[in-house]
Design a protein around this nucleic acid. Structure first.
Length: 545
RNA sequence: GGCCCCGUCGUCUAGAGGCCUAGGACACGGCCCUUUCAAGGCCGCGACACGGGUUCGAAUCCCGUCGGGGUCACCA
């Protein structure tokens, strides 16, 4: 019994960073291919000339590589480079009467839709009866046209590997969809059918939002005499904020919401926001007036700064966001795999190899899944604590490569390993990074936070400050500047003075870090070294006590 | 609104008629540990949407109701 090789593919359109919904689709296709020893291909669907960019393609490729979802085609397939192939097939369909040119303008079509809606009737495009004379006239005028596929008016049914048999729609839903746009590019529906056939794709795993599109695709396959691949429609990933399909727009929405709050509480207008952020007023007014408009990636930071939003306050939607915040790619894959799929039983934490060996279409569920960031965080915390140091060092290097503003970027490998060890238990690398930056700052750049100084040093008639002055001498003591020796010295002082360790450790912490939060204090001091420790204590006493 | 898909703890899910007093994970609450923030340990709270069938027996099968989502482009 021959078992034909399974061929899957991921076919994103390059309009920006890869988002987690797309990553999940890519992952499932990759897993199916790897599990079965088949092939997984990558195709770039760049037929929307207005929105596709080379930069987006590069970002997509980089995100996919970061996730470790490597594809098997040496050369990427770009739809925009395959026009002659599409056109030959379209010409053939036209010659066979299965496709035809349609001359309506966008305005005419939308007028027809409005009219149908007024008449409380569903709009369905069906082939208009044009006389030869009309066609000659349009052609001689050089009127722009699209090519539409002449769908037979009948039932379209197919079986879905996840949703079951008998999917599709009846004759009432049929309409003649566009297969070539007026700019000469194929539409998604056309390109996907042709390319899947030519690339030998056997299994199509994609989001459930494509379920009904499948009818168009099978109609085309029938007309072209192509075999039908196996379809598996994945449940949709829902955003907790909106309880609707996870979308890039969710980030913009958060900024919009905060900007609204800012204007209300500060009694400001969009014009004020424009001035403060340095963006054109007209642009911000446009954005505010229309919720369908989004800020560009370059416009977001200035606005966020003004309204008091940090990068980490935004929901992570893009794969790049997760990378930038320091999640482990294998953890993101593990978590994403569980959104709509389960290996059965209680198994949850899986390595990439385990995902591959357990994956099957049977384990894919039908119900939509809400994206639960807390659980991802918990997975990442656990995996970060359990991963071997070399793995975490590599992850930290990757994190720093795209967070070049962090002072840790200047650290050498042994230092980074110590930082990782000191911060054991962190959720994401950003947390370890931000908690450790003071270690790599020059002494004179340590900023003493006023509430930390107040609470730890000045309160109770300067009890903390007094302890700090005394312990300064103690810190001069240890000949060996090792955490254990420093700890022994400080604890000895505490015992002698009948003080809890916290009464002394916290003032030291504020003195060296400027804040009440740091890695464990004695390891921190060891890392800083005796000279820096004492210099910072002295500086703190001078400035803040 | 039409069409389509779905419905087990707050969330992700296990569950293929008796193994279910419904299991796990995250979150949440309590206690412990503790030099900060975390991490960790122990304990706990918590669901078969509702109503009808079918069956000796239903979370599991059927029907209806309700609820949620998707989709209605010269975007993919």
């Amino acid at each position: 019994m021959s078992n034909p090789t399974i061929v899957t593919r991921f076919a994103p359109s390059p309009t920006g960073y890869l988002h987690v919904g797309g990553a999940r689709t890519a992952l499932f296709n990759w897993l199916l291919a790897r599990h079965s020893g088949g092939r997984y291909l990558l195709r770039i669907e760049d037929t929307d000339l207005a929105r596709s960019t080379d930069q987006a393609t590069r970002q997509l490729v980089e995100d996919l590589r970061w996730l470790g979802l490597n594809w098997d085609n040496a050369e990427l397939v770009y739809q925009s480079r395959r026009l002659p192939i599409y056109n030959a097939i379209i010409d053939d369909l036209i010659a066979r009467g299965l496709a035809y040119k349609a001359y309506e303008t966008a305005e005419e079509l939308s007028a027809q839709r409005v009219q149908a809606e007024r008449a409380r009737r569903q709009y369905r495009y069906r082939r208009p009866q044009l006389t030869d004379e009309q066609i000659r006239k349009y052609e001689s005028e050089g009127r722009p046209h699209v090519v539409r596929f002449a769908m037979a008016v009948k039932e379209y049914r197919f079986s879905d590997a996840v949703l079951g048999a008998n999917q599709g729609f009846g004759p009432g839903e049929v309409q003649d969809f566009v297969i070539r746009k007026s700019d000469g590019m194929p539409t998604y529906h056309f390109g996907v059918v042709i390319d899947d056939q030519e690339m030998g794709v056997t299994h199509v795993l994609r989001g459930q939002e494509h379920l009904l599109n499948t009818c168009n695709h099978i109609a085309l396959q029938e007309a072209l005499n192509y075999p039908r691949p196996i379809y598996a429609h994945l449940p949709v990933i829902l955003a907790p904020e909106t309880k609707a399909k996870l979308s890039k727009r969710d980030r913009d929405q958060k900024i919009r919401q905060r900007a609204g709050e800012w204007m209300r509480s500060q009694k400001k207008t969009a014009a004020d926001l424009a001035t403060a952020s340095g963006l054109p007023e007209a642009r911000l007014a446009e954005w505010f007036g229309n919720t369908a408009k989004q800020l560009d990636l370059s416009e977001q930071p200035p606005v966020m700064r003004i309204v008091g939003l940090r990068e980490v306050d935004l929901p992570e939607i893009m794969v790049h966001d997760f990378r930038k915040n320091g999640y482990l790619p294998e953890v993101l894959n593990n978590f994403l795999a569980l959104l709509g799929w389960s290996p059965g039983g209680d198994r949850e934490r899986m390595t990439m190899d385990e995902l591959v060996s357990h994956f099957s279409i049977d384990g894919i569920g039908k119900a939509n899944a809400m994206f639960n960031r807390d659980k991802l965080l918990a997975f990442n915390t656990e995996a970060s604590a359990a991963s071997p140091p070399p793995r975490m060092l590599a992850a930290m290097r990757d994190y720093l490569a795209i967070n070049t503003d962090s002072p840790l970027a200047s650290a050498d490998d042994p230092q980074l390993e110590k930082v990782l060890k000191m911060n054991h238990g962190f959720h994401i690398l950003r947390e370890a990074d931000e908690k450790s930056r003071f270690l790599f700052l020059p002494d004179n750049e340590i900023e003493y936070q006023t509430d930390a100084v107040e609470k730890v040093l000045k309160k109770n008639d300067g009890q903390g400050a007094a302890a700090l002055r005394e312990v300064r001498g103690v810190l001069d003591g240890p000949a060996n500047w090792q955490a254990a020796d420093i700890e022994a010295a400080v604890k000895g002082y505490c015992d002698q003075k009948q003080l809890g360790l916290g009464k002394v450790a916290q003032p030291i912490r504020v003195a060296v870090s400027g804040t009440t939060i740091s890695p464990p204090i004695f390891e921190t001091l060891e890392f800083l070294g005796k000279a820096k420790t004492i210099a910072r204590v002295d500086r703190c006493i001078t400035l803040s006590c």
